[in-house]
Design a protein around this nucleic acid. Structure first.
Lengths: 252, 252
DNA sequence: CCATCTTTGTGCACGCGTTCACAAAGACAT
DNA sequence: ATGTCTTTGTGAACGCGTGCACAAAGATGG
């Protein structure tokens, strides 16, 4: 693999910053693409460009994993793919359950990106008795009553919640009680979990609202610019000033 | 605005920290729930609990918006709902297009959370000619050829990409060229956009990998604990030590 | 009108993450 | 073997975000 005997065991302890962890999958994806094109090595500059980050940041990120990489050359692609995969725990298989097989749950079940890297859909669970047995993405849906049994039989530690908001906390509680310690939540609710359980949320509505904020801000600046140089209105005329359409003082 | 002559114009300029912006939708959701229950006022402590954040953080967040809130009482729910909505730009309607009507795109189109708050699905676009005209969520799918026209006719500034990874950059380029300045990307790719265009990504695969990392770490600590006090194995026996299956020091 | 009690708004300190800039390491040519 | 050139790995400075802790503001009761 690498050339010379690598230096120290590195910062290796267990202090990988959260921000770095969040970027490792990005690097891994870029590296996998390079690997498929049989590229043997890559410089931090190139890889950083592919992953859309600063090259110094990338090097620092990798430094937390150890001293892979050869000065003057770059990083060995295959080696790095392996190291990152191992660090992320993708060398083992993670059985996952999806709870709530509505539009979204079904889409997730069909999503190819699941199986691609170490994740395996162990079961689909829904509260609707009418769905029980019905196959989605080739996997028969099981009823919520079976939840605990499914978790335990399959050694599931990662659960995906795609239920309506109202059911999410209850489902979450049951998952946790059954032994799940990581949850990916697609329901638009804040989940309360005990210590030791990780929750990550994916919230379409929130993302859109953040975009709307910036969009409005951009429109505001643009409007200020137009005050000086009136440009041809591009947007429909219903577009109002983003801040000026309401009195400054509120109803109360 | 508030009661006495407020001190300075506040930090008010346009310096709302990004981290705060990202939390405003959370507060808004909690406040909306309170509003529906006709709760008139709420303290920072209560609201913070509902939103799952620290109360000091919440107060500081609100302080960026201005001095709403009454000492000794709390915040007026309705008033705050309106202020945050306005700040996020939700008092106007944002037409949105969804490109890529596969499993995920269709699920997004059907997702109720879209229309609920200021967002309106203006069009569904797909590259498959066979889908053209077919209604999804009550909206007829249009062909990619129409993309530019749709964007311009509807004054769309927010686009959602739900295509396969391979098509995402190309779609992105066309959206941007047509006038879209905010993109929500569900495709597992890094998108390159010019300055002034905002991109937010939602990536199932990345989220799972982050969870896997922590899961592995937890299992590692647990294994270390078991070395001292061997507990009954809960998970299936295929479960290996998450870090112990490889030598601590690497091959090289 | 005054005292007390609640809750906001924020100054301050701290820690994490990012970025710059450069010395050290190694490849490669001569 | 030696010098040059490329690229890593990281020390240090900076800025942002978080959380504590408290003074000021105002409500409420006597």
């Amino acid at each position: 693999m690498a050339t010379g005997r690598t230096h120290r065991p590195a910062t290796r302890s267990r202090g990988i910053p959260e921000a770095t962890v969040a970027r490792l999958p990005l690097y891994l994806r870029a590296l996998t693409a390079l690997s498929e094109r049989s590229v043997p090595t890559v410089s931090s500059e190139e890889l950083a460009a592919a992953a859309g980050v600063n090259s110094a940041k990338l090097r620092k990120d990798f430094s937390y994993l150890g001293s892979y990489g050869t000065r003057g050359v770059g990083y060995d692609v295959e080696y790095l793919v392996y190291q990152i995969s191992r660090e992320l725990g993708l060398t083992q298989d993670w059985p996952v359950v999806i709870v709530g097989i509505g539009n979204l749950g079904a889409a997730l079940a069909n999503y190819g990106g699941f199986a691609s890297r170490g994740f395996r859909v162990a079961a689909l669970i829904d509260a609707d008795p009418g769905m029980a047995g019905k196959p989605v993405a080739g996997i028969p849906v099981q009823h919520t009553d079976e939840l605990e049994k499914i978790i335990q039989d399959n050694g599931v530690s990662i659960g995906v919640i795609a239920t309506p908001a109202g059911a999410a906390q209850q489902v979450c509680d049951r998952l946790v009680a059954a032994g799940v310690t990581s949850i990916l939540n697609f329901a638009p609710t804040v989940l309360n979990v005990p210590d030791g359980v990780d929750v990550r949320k994916v919230d379409l509505s929130i993302e859109l609202q953040i975009l709307a904020f910036h969009e409005q801000r951009k429109a505001g600046e643009e409007a200020a610019a137009e005050a000086a140089v009136p440009a041809a209105a591009r947007k429909a005329s219903t577009d109002q000033g983003p801040d000026g359409d309401v009195p400054a003082v509120m109803p109360a």
